[in-house]
Design a protein around this nucleic acid. Structure first.
Lengths: 344, 344
DNA sequence: CTGAAAGCGCTAACAC
DNA sequence: GTGTTAGCGCTTTCAG
C-alpha cells in the first residue's frame, strides 16, 4: 500500500506504462524489463490500487450477492450458508471479490439498492431467495445490471440457474409409490416461492405417474423452518398417512420431532423423504432419504453466468437447470443396502 | 449510472464543486443552489461513482469479513450464518459495504490475502474463526490494516470483541452442581480454539466453586460438528455421567442423538446443558438449557470497533467482552417454571 | 457562497 | 519495446 506504478517504475528503471503492462500480462514487453519489474513487484509486495483501476476501466471485479431475506429465519436454514459458500468459492476461483447485501428490512432494501445498482460498485449481481411478486427483482432487471438468479424467478427476462425441483419431488413421489405406500402426504414448502410451487407440482406429477392424486387432506405447508415442519406434521398425523414427502430437510427435522413426540417412528409408522441433503444432522446420520440438490454447483454456475453476462458473452435471459438426485437411505423404508446393490 | 457530477451540475446550473458539496452535506451552500441540485439528483437517481470517490479519498467504505474456514464443517454451524448476518446488519446501518472473504484452502488464502490488505479495497477487516497459532492473524496485525476480531485472539496486539465463554461455562457448571448432580461430564470444544479453551477453563472453575474437580474420564472433546458430539457422547455414556455440559448446541444435538439411540433420556438419565442458543431446533423447541451468546451484538460491536479504528478514534488493541446468559429450560432437570418464578 | 483547477493511481491510445 | 499523454469521476484547496 502506498506504492504506485510510478514508484515501481522508478525502482525498476522503466516507465509506469511498462510496469502496467507487466502486471496485466501484456506480451509486448522485453524479457529483461519484465524481469526487473517482476523482481521489484515481488520484493515490495506491490498490489495495484483497485479504485484507480476501476475508475479507468469501469470494472470493479466485484460481484454482489443479494439476499433479500425479510424473513429472519431464512438464516436458520443451512441452504443460505451453502449458497454463500458456493458463490464465495466460485468468486475466489474467478478472481472476483464478493460483496454481500442482506436486506433484512424494507428500509435496508431502499437504502442499499442504489449502492448495488447505481454506484458502479459491483460489476454484476447474483440474487437469491426472492419471494414471488417481489418488485425488487423487476427493478434489478430494469436496471440492466448483469444479473443471475439462484433459483427460478417468477418473472420473465431474468437469467438464472435453478435446481430441478420438479423432478426431485417427482422422484420422491414415484419412489414412495413404488414402495407401495397408500396414503402419501405432502408437507410442502411455501407456495409463494417458485421452489415451493415446483416441488408441489413435481410431487403431484409423481403421484400421477402411478395414477394417484394428492388428497387435499394429506397436504400441509410449512415455511422452511423446523417449527413449521413440526406444526404441519402434527396436523398431518391425524390424517394417518403412511408416508410423507417433506419439501425441505429442516422441516423434515421438525416433522420427525412431531412424530417422535407422538410415539411414531420412521419408516415403520410413517415413511419420510426430505429435500436438500445439506443439514448437519442429515449429513452425519446418513439416515434420511432425501433429494440432494447441488447447491455449490448451482452457485458456481450462477457466478460463471454473471461473469459471462458482464463480458457480454451471452445475451440474457439464459437459464440452466441442474439435475437433482434422490438419495435412498433408511427413513423411507427401502433397504438402502438392497438399493445400493441394485445393479440398475 | 453514467451520470457524473458535471452532468448534474449542468442540469442544475451550478458547477460540479457545488454539486459535490451538496451531496456531501457541506453547509456552505446557498439554499437555492442546494434545492436545485437536490431536485436534479432525486429526479435523475444520480449515485456517486464509488471508484472515483475512493481514489481521491483513499477510503472505500468497504469492510471485509474474513473467515479462514479451512475446515469445511464450519459452515454447518449456524454460528457463522449469525455472524455474517450480524456484521451485515451493522454494516448496513453504518452505511458500509460488506465484502466477504472465505478462505477454504491454503491456496485461496495465499491468493486472496493481498487483495484484502494490499489493494486498498477494504478500509478495515473483521476476522473470525481463526484457529490458535494461525499465522494469518499475525500477518494481518503486521499489515496494520484496521482489524477487529470476533472472538478472542491467541496473540497480543489484536483488537477484539468476544463473548464471555469462561463465565458461560462457569455458570453452566455451577448450575449443574447446584442441581445436585454428581458425575458431571464435559463434552468440550476443540482446544486449539480460544473458545474451546475458555469454555474448558470456565467449566473447571465452576466445578471448583463447589469444591469439585473435572474427572478426566468424564471429558471428551468434539470439533463443533453434530457428528463429533455424537461420537464423544457415545464414549462418555460408558462412564455413566448424570449430567453433561456440551460446549456447543450443534454438538449437543449429536449428544442427544447418541443418548436417544442408547435409550437414555434427558434430563432423567443425563441432564444436558448446551452453549449457543441459536440452532433452529433449540430455538423452536425451547427445551435445551443452554448458554446464550449474543452473536449479533458481538458482530455489531466489532463493526463499530473497526470503524472507530479506521477513523483513528481509538488506539489498538482494544477489547470488549460481552456477557452471556444461562437460559434454564427443561433439559437440565430444573423445572423452568420454578426458576422463572424464583424472585432472586 | 461558488467556480476553477489540481490531482488521486491507473489504463490505453499514440508516439517514438 | 517502451515512454508520453490524456483522461476516468471525484474531492479539495484556492481564488474570487
Amino acid at each position: 500500500m502506498g506504492l504506485t506504478l510510478e514508484d515501481i517504475g522508478r525502482m525498476a528503471g522503466v516507465s509506469r506504462s511498462t510496469v502496467s503492462r507487466v502486471i496485466n500480462g501484456d506480451a509486448q514487453v522485453g524479457e529483461d524489463a519484465r524481469q526487473r519489474v517482476q523482481d521489484v513487484v515481488r520484493r515490495t509486495g506491490y498490489t495495484p490500487n483497485v479504485a484507480a483501476r476501476s475508475l479507468v476501466s469501469s470494472r470493479t471485479g466485484v460481484i454482489g450477492l443479494v439476499i433479500p431475506s425479510r424473513v429472519n429465519h431464512l438464516f436458520e436454514d443451512p441452504y443460505f450458508a451453502r449458497v454463500i459458500q458456493g458463490v464465495s468459492a466460485a468468486c475466489n476461483r474467478a478472481g472476483k471479490s464478493l460483496s454481500l447485501f442482506v436486506f433484512q428490512t424494507e428500509d435496508e432494501e431502499r437504502d442499499l439498492y442504489p449502492r448495488v445498482v447505481g454506484s458502479g460498485f459491483v460489476d454484476g449481481v447474483i440474487i437469491t431467495a426472492t419471494h414471488m411478486g417481489d418488485p425488487l427483482l423487476a427493478r434489478m432487471v430494469d436496471s440492466e445490471i448483469p444479473l443471475a438468479m439462484v433459483g427460478r424467478p417468477d418473472i420473465d427476462g431474468v437469467s438464472y440457474v435453478d435446481v430441478d425441483n420438479r423432478d426431485g419431488a417427482r422422484q420422491a413421489a414415484a419412489h414412495l409409490c413404488g414402495l407401495g405406500y397408500q396414503r402419501i402426504a405432502l408437507l410442502g414448502a411455501p407456495t409463494n416461492t417458485t421452489a415451493g410451487l415446483d416441488r408441489l407440482e413435481g410431487f403431484v406429477k409423481g403421484l400421477g405417474e402411478s395414477e394417484r392424486a394428492l388428497d387435499p387432506g394429506l397436504r400441509a405447508d410449512g415455511d422452511f423452518s423446523e417449527r413449521s415442519g413440526y406444526d404441519a406434521m402434527r396436523a398431518l398425523i391425524r390424517q394417518r398417512p403412511d408416508a410423507v414427502f417433506v419439501a425441505s430437510d429442516t422441516m423434515a427435522m421438525g416433522a420427525l420431532r412431531a412424530m417422535r413426540e407422538t410415539g411414531l417412528e420412521a419408516p415403520s409408522d410413517i415413511a419420510v423423504v426430505g429435500f436438500d441433503d445439506l443439514a448437519p444432522a442429515v449429513m452425519s446420520t446418513q439416515w434420511l432419504t432425501t433429494v440432494r440438490q447441488p447447491v455449490a454447483a448451482t452457485a458456481e454456475r450462477a457466478v460463471q453466468l454473471v461473469i459471462e453476462l458482464i463480458h457480454g458473452e451471452v445475451t440474457p435471459p439464459v437459464s440452466e437447470v441442474m439435475p437433482v438426485e434422490l438419495i435412498v437411505r433408511a427413513s423411507c423404508g427401502a433397504a438402502p443396502a438392497a438399493t445400493a446393490a441394485d445393479p440398475s
